[in-house]
Design a protein around this nucleic acid. Sequence first.
DNA 1: GAGAAACACTATAAACTAGATAGAGTAAAG
DNA 2: CTTTACTCTATCTAGTTTATAGTGTTTCTC
Lengths: 148, 148
Amino acid sequence: MISQKAKYALRALVALAREGESMMIGEIAAHEKIPRKFLEQILLEMKRHGIVMSRRGKLGGYALLMPADQITFGQVLRILDGPLAPLPCLSRIAYRRCADCRTEEDCEIRHVFAAVANSARDVLDRTTIADAIARRERVAVGAVEPVS
Amino acid sequence: MISQKAKYALRALVALAREGESMMIGEIAAHEKIPRKFLEQILLEMKRHGIVMSRRGKLGGYALLMPADQITFGQVLRILDGPLAPLPCLSRIAYRRCADCRTEEDCEIRHVFAAVANSARDVLDRTTIADAIARRERVAVGAVEPVS
DNA sequence: GAGAAACACTATAAACTAGATAGAGTAAAG
DNA sequence: CTTTACTCTATCTAGTTTATAGTGTTTCTC
């Protein structure tokens, strides 16, 4: 399960991308039904990572700093929820050996989850905010086709 | 990230499948470096779900009740970690509408994560304990091929 | 430059969850 | 009838998630 935080962030980014111009936190919060003060923290974090920019004072607000077709879901999730990988020993951004794992290469569990992690990354690192807005059906061109 | 609990469960099942016959909790715990009392709870839960069986008293222990090639990773994860789906509104076993979501069909976030969920399920519901033991490389025949 | 509007920052809180640990209870073997 | 090993329930602790509160700082307008 992804966190509320990440979900809020993605929704806020979609809103900003849709709007095309600067929006005040209050506007976004109201429109997307996000607790306002919580959204402040989230947007601040996104700002620190160069995804959005802000302007203070009257006429202030937030706007995308990166173009919507360059902000991937993976990027946002990694910022707010940490590694995408289902096991620490499979994470690219925060690798940690499993304390109790004998040998990593022989770990049966690891091999299976590596496949899961790869296919998740395949979707999340290709799909951008712009994609999410533009296409309702086909997500992440060339990526895995949903099965059942 | 999957929970320790699920990881322990999968490792224990692999151990049982490898062994082929009944094993005592203490054996499994020692061999797989799993806290013994914690493993008790896990195996008990697996027993309630008909995956393993147990025998008490001297000569007691646990053994697989289902054949190893019929126990899927998805099944185990759902028992111990709950839904595989990254959003409640995408879960098959525990669907819940997102409280703050306007219309489900138009939710941009949902569409993206549906693709992720499907590809994860595609691997996890096809890969069995037997698969994990047998093949180190090719996981879940016919499933998604790892990309990068 | 005063005042108001809006973001910036830090601290705190409430609720929940993960990961274990403890201990009394029950069944089976010999 | 004692030992061994699983069964069950309760509890604990630390950490995380999801906020909320309040003060500070920037900028616009008049």
